[in-house]
């Protein structure tokens, strides 16, 4: 974990609604593992007291990329970031996904909702083997990086709410279709909205498979100090509050205690 000042080396649109921001951050890049995140200080938002957390999307040499969508005043302000700008970054933070070994029996099955694909691409790029990606989104504009996964040799199955790309419906539709005829045991790695994570987690528990879920909770400090982003988890039968930023963001499906109202 470092506080590192990095310069912007790329800031480009991805499709119509997303952008990729790339910073030169040698110290963060050297430590980063798939599933971890960086906490960006937004100097252009001078009245903001909180950093903004983003999953690491790519690490190429000294450079770290994030993939984001404009959803609030922080990400709206980020549109003004220019090449050469210096940004203050805290990271890498969080636990990251456990990396299956090359001889693991289970097939890696990634499940992404919208820009939840970001940490899964970093994961795929670091895995010694290929598997399946199920990606879902509201429309075809929310399905990202398909070609990148295919270039790595991954089998990609898609779903959109409006049917504009892949199967019409939730990402669980093609996932369930595959599970119905799967001949290999899956190990899930998922990132996306709570409803999707919960659905993947339920399938992992029901099937007796491992399912690693990347949780997104409103964060403060990012290092486990403020206790804003807590999540109830169950370990060895005991329920405790875990800090999503520090003890997570990756939790195994069996650990997560979903609230009755979620999602």
């Amino acid at each position: 974990m470092h506080v590192e000042e990095g310069s912007v080396v790329a800031h480009e649109p991805m499709g119509s609604a997303y952008r990729v921001l790339t910073l030169r951050l040698p110290r963060v890049a050297a430590q980063a593992r798939p599933g971890q995140f960086v906490h960006l200080r937004l100097a252009m938002l001078s009245d903001a007291v909180l950093r903004r957390p983003f999953s690491i999307y790519r690490v190429d040499g000294d450079c770290v990329s994030i993939l984001y969508k404009t959803i609030g005043r922080g990400t709206a302000a980020m549109k003004s970031i220019r090449l050469g700008d210096a940004m203050n970054v805290l990271g890498p933070l969080g636990n990251g996904f456990p990396l299956p070994t090359a001889d693991a029996i289970a097939l890696p099955v990634l499940v992404a909702g919208g820009y939840g694909v970001a940490p899964l691409y970093f994961l795929a790029s670091r895995l010694p083997r290929t598997g399946l990606l199920f990606a879902g989104g509201a429309t075809n504009a929310d399905i990202l990086c398909v070609e990148c996964f295919q270039a790595l040799g991954w089998d990609v199955r898609l779903a959109t709410d409006d049917g504009s790309l892949g199967v019409r419906g939730l990402v669980t539709a093609p996932l369930d279709a595959w599970l119905g005829e799967a001949r290999r045991e899956p190990e899930f790695f998922a990132c996306g909205p709570n409803g999707m994570l919960r659905a993947v987690g339920e399938r992992a528990v029901a099937g007796g498979w491992k399912g690693w879920l990347s949780l997104d909770r409103h964060m403060g400090c990012g290092v486990g100090a403020c206790l804003a982003c807590v999540q109830m988890i169950r370990k060895d039968g005991v329920e405790t509050l875990a800090r999503v930023c520090k003890d997570g963001p990756i939790f195994e499906s069996r650990e997560v205690v979903w609230e009755p109202s979620e999602p």
């Binding site: 909180l50 409103h218 403060g220 206790l227 804003a228 982003c229």
Partner: peptide, 30 residues
């Protein structure tokens, strides 16, 4: 951070929201 006699779970989430020039928290002394 504040310590009580027995362990304490604090409040439900959301516990924190940023506002202009600050943040409003209700961690609840977990």
């Amino acid at each position: 951070k504040g310590i009580s006699l027995e362990p304490w779970g604090g409040n439900r989430t959301p516990r924190l929201v940023e506002v202009s020039g600050g943040l409003v928290n209700a961690i609840g002394l977990q």
